[in-house]
C-alpha cells in the first residue's frame, strides 16, 4: 500500500465541504502548515475544526477563519486570535470550548476504541451541563465521549513511508492522539525517510495509524512570543 503523496494539495484532494477535521498543534507549534495552506487554496467550506487553539489572526487556522471556511471550532483556548474571539462573540462561529485535558483524552479515546470515560475536569462548571455525573471514592466526575474525525491533519518531524513518525520538542502535543483518531490521517513531515531509517525503539507514532504522508515544504514555524534572556 503506497501511503506517499506528492504534496498537501494531493493529500487533501478528497476532503469535502462540511468535513470534520482534526488539526495538530499547540498555538503555532506543530501545526500542519502545508495542509492549512492547501485547505485555504481549495476553498472548502463549512468545516468543523478540532484543534487546541485557533492560530493567530494571520497564521495557522486563523487563515481559514479569515476566509470564513470554518463553521465550528472545538478547542480549549482561542485567546491568541482576535478575529476568532470576534466571530465567537458575534455568533458567526459555533464554538465548543473544552478543557484541554478532556480534549486530549477524548481524542486519544476516540482513536483507542474507548467510547467514553470519566474525568473530574469541569465538574461544577458550565462544562458539566447536560452530562452524566458519577461519584467515585467521594469525588465527582463527568462522563465524556471519545472524539474522532473524518480527516486528521498531523505535523511530524520525521516519518517513513510506512507512516512511522517522530516528533520534535513541544511540536508533539496533540499530533500523536490525532493521528490515532482520524478516519484518514494525513501527515506532513520535515523529513520523509525510508523504512528502517528510524529506530523502532524511537518511534512515537506507529505507522498503523497513518494513511497518507508527504514531504512538507517551506515551514515558517512562526513564534508567538519570542522570549529570550541576556547573557550575564
Amino acid at each position: 500500500m503506497n501511503k506517499v503523496f506528492s504534496d498537501a494539495g494531493a493529500a487533501i484532494h478528497d476532503i469535502p465541504d462540511n468535513a470534520v477535521l482534526m488539526l495538530g498543534g499547540f498555538g503555532l507549534c506543530g501545526i500542519p502548515e502545508n495542509c492549512i495552506s492547501a485547505l485555504v487554496t481549495k476553498g472548502l467550506k463549512g468545516l468543523t475544526c478540532i484543534s487546541n487553539n485557533a492560530g493567530v489572526d494571520d497564521f495557522g487556522i486563523g487563515l481559514m477563519l479569515k476566509t470564513r471556511q470554518v463553521k465550528k471550532m472545538i478547542s480549549s483556548y482561542v485567546g491568541e486570535n482576535a478575529e476568532f474571539e470576534r466571530q465567537l462573540l458575534s455568533g458567526e462561529l459555533e464554538v465548543d470550548l473544552i478543557p484541554q485535558g478532556t480534549l486530549a483524552e477524548r481524542i486519544r479515546a476516540g482513536g483507542a476504541g474507548i467510547p467514553a470515560f470519566y474525568t473530574p475536569a469541569g465538574y461544577g462548571t458550565e462544562v458539566a451541563q447536560g452530562k452524566e455525573i458519577r461519584e467515585f471514592n467521594g469525588k465527582f466526575y463527568l462522563l465524556e465521549h471519545g472524539l474522532t474525525a473524518d480527516f486528521a491533519l498531523v505535523k511530524a518531524w520525521k516519518g517513513d513511508t510506512d507512516g512511522n513518525l517522530i516528533f520534535k520538542g513541544t511540536a508533539r502535543n496533540f499530533n500523536p492522539m490525532m493521528a490515532m483518531a482520524g478516519k484518514i490521517t494525513i501527515v506532513e513531515v520535515e523529513e520523509l525517510l525510508e523504512p528502517g531509517q528510524l529506530d523502532p525503539n524511537q518511534i512515537h507514532t506507529p505507522g498503523i495509524f497513518v494513511q497518507r504522508i508527504f514531504q512538507g515544504v517551506n515551514y515558517e514555524k512562526r513564534i508567538e512570543q519570542r522570549t529570550v534572556r541576556k547573557r550575564p
Binding site: F26, G27, L28, C29, G30, N52, E80, Q100, G101, A104, E105, I107, R108, W157, F167, K168, G169, T170, A171, R172, N173, F174, N175, P176, M177, H204, K221, R222, I223, E224, Q225, R226, T227, V228
Partner: peptide, 24 residues
Amino acid sequence: DPDLINAGKQTVTTLPGSSIFDSS
C-alpha cells in the same frame, strides 16, 4: 527554537533531566 515553547507560547529551553511527551 520554535519547537520548544511553554503553555503561554513563549520560547523556553530544556534542562538536564527534562522530558518531552504528548498532551494526553
